[in-house]
């Protein structure tokens, strides 16, 4: 009897540890995704103001959303970070082209 209660306690303890760990695991990556996605979306919005969004940025944002819907947050975070990098590149392009376009002009 005593032995059985020890086993039960052990199982309960293990379950408690597992549930705590899995809860922390679930909250962490999802929060990471939300942060990464918000940053990517903000950068893409800025690219939109500059009228210079890129198609691969949109694709990466869509991939991030799809992965998040499937709770594949590692993939979702990676896609969101890729989208942010692409959006920032398009912003850089738009800003540098404000003057650089003149180099191509036929005179």
């Amino acid at each position: 009897m005593r032995r059985l209660s020890k086993v039960s306690l052990g199982i309960l303890g293990l379950l408690a540890i597992l549930s705590t760990k899995s809860a922390a695991f679930a909250a962490g990556p999802e929060a990471d995704f939300k942060t990464a996605y918000a940053a990517a979306e903000a950068a893409e919005k800025q690219a939109g103001v500059l009228r210079n969004q890129w198609l691969p940025t949109e694709t990466a944002l869509a991939d991030a959303r799809k992965a998040a819907e499937k709770s594949d947050f590692d993939r979702a975070v990676a896609a969101a970070k890729e989208a942010e990098a692409l959006a920032k590149a398009s912003i850089f392009q738009a800003n540098s082209e404000k003057e650089a376009w003149k180099n191509l002009e036929i005179r």
Binding site: N52, L55, A89, Q93, E97, W101, L104, E105
Partner: peptide
Amino acid sequence: KRYFYTRRGQLNFS
């Protein structure tokens, strides 16, 4: 004219 000569898109083409 500016639009015509401005590079855009991931391929960086105008």
